[in-house]
Amino acid sequence: MPEAIWFRDDARPRKPRLSRERIVEASVALLDAEGVSGFSMRALAARLQAGTMSLYEYVKSKEDVLDLALDEVLGEIEPDEGPSWRATVVRRLTQSRHVMRRHPWVPALTATRPLLGPNALARSRLFYSTLADAGLSGPALVAAVGALTSYVNGYVAAENTWWATIRTPAADTEIRERVGRFLEENATELSRQAQVDNGDFDRQFLLGLDIILDGIETRLGADA
């Protein structure tokens, strides 16, 4: 894996026509439009109406641009605190989900690179300190952060893939009805349990999150 930009002292010369800020802004827009698979330095240069080689006056590589774009959108997660540790976690992960819905390429990048940019670090500090102040420490703290992060990333990755494929609420309803009829005819018990007619992604996300938080709260009570 190429060395992440955050490990380098990478103050690069600036020219008046471009800036790292403009490059990052255009990178986010390109990623939103084309995803990671459609991202290239050539496509980015075209969006900026600049030569491809001119970008390297500001960044060392494509990976640098992806790191910077990712940290930029992570800054959309407001690092605010709720009235309790649970409320703070729910706010943080709900906002994270909204950011990853607006920028569907985010889950893939968060899974493949260190999140060490200023925005990522600020939000990680709050997340860890919230759970630490609740009473978690050591491996239990790390495991709780990992479980919650994996939940939101996995949920949104599946949600994004679903809507990229199904595309409309009407199509979502139709496939759920077809699956429901099939299960009623071929797996009656599973049909009752799975409730495939429930297409409320918001409610399901919060319910799943509550179940994980209940487990964490039980752990806190056991360690008291």
Rank of each mutant, 00 (worst) to 15 (best):
Y155Q: 04
V73M: 00
G82I: 07
S150T: 10
T52Q: 15
P139D: 05
S61N: 04
N160Y: 04
D202N: 13
N119W: 00
E25W: 01
M1R: 13
G117P: 04
A194F: 10
L55E: 01
R219I: 04
S124M: 06
Q49E: 15
V196R: 00
S124I: 05
D172T: 13
P79D: 12
L141P: 04
Q49Y: 09
G82Y: 05
V28R: 03
L148G: 00
A134L: 08
F7S: 15
T88P: 06
E76P: 02
I212F: 08
E21T: 08
V179C: 09
S27E: 00
T110F: 07
T94V: 14
S96W: 03
I23T: 10
D64S: 03
A46G: 05
H98E: 15
Y155V: 02
L31R: 00
A33T: 13
L116I: 07
G208K: 10
P2G: 12
A111C: 11
V152P: 01
P118G: 14
D9S: 15
P79M: 11
I216V: 07
G221D: 15
W6V: 07
A171Y: 06
G180V: 04
E57N: 14
A143Y: 06
M100L: 06
E81L: 14
V90L: 03
E185Q: 15
L48R: 06
A46P: 03
L109S: 05
L131N: 01
L48D: 05
M41Q: 07
P118F: 10
L136G: 00
G117V: 01
A171S: 12
D80P: 05
K62Y: 09
G138N: 09
A140T: 08
E189K: 05
Y56M: 05
G75W: 06
P83D: 14
S61V: 00
D9P: 08
A45I: 02
L207W: 06
R14P: 03
E34M: 11
W162S: 08
R92P: 03
A29F: 02
E25D: 13
S54N: 13
A194N: 04
S84L: 08
L93T: 03
A194S: 09
T165H: 12
S61F: 04
G180F: 01
V152W: 03
A111Q: 13
I5R: 09
T52H: 13
R86W: 02
T112L: 13
L209M: 09
D210W: 05
R42T: 15
T165I: 14
D214T: 14
V196G: 01
R12Y: 10
Q195N: 12
F182T: 12
D214H: 11
Y56E: 02
A50H: 07
V28M: 12
N153R: 13
L116T: 10
E174R: 13
I166H: 01
E174L: 15
T173W: 07
S84N: 05
D210H: 10
R17M: 11
T110G: 06
F7N: 14
G215L: 03
R219N: 08
D9I: 12
G180P: 01
G154V: 03
Q195C: 08
D133Q: 14
A222R: 13
R176G: 00
G35M: 07
G38W: 05
R176W: 04
L55S: 00
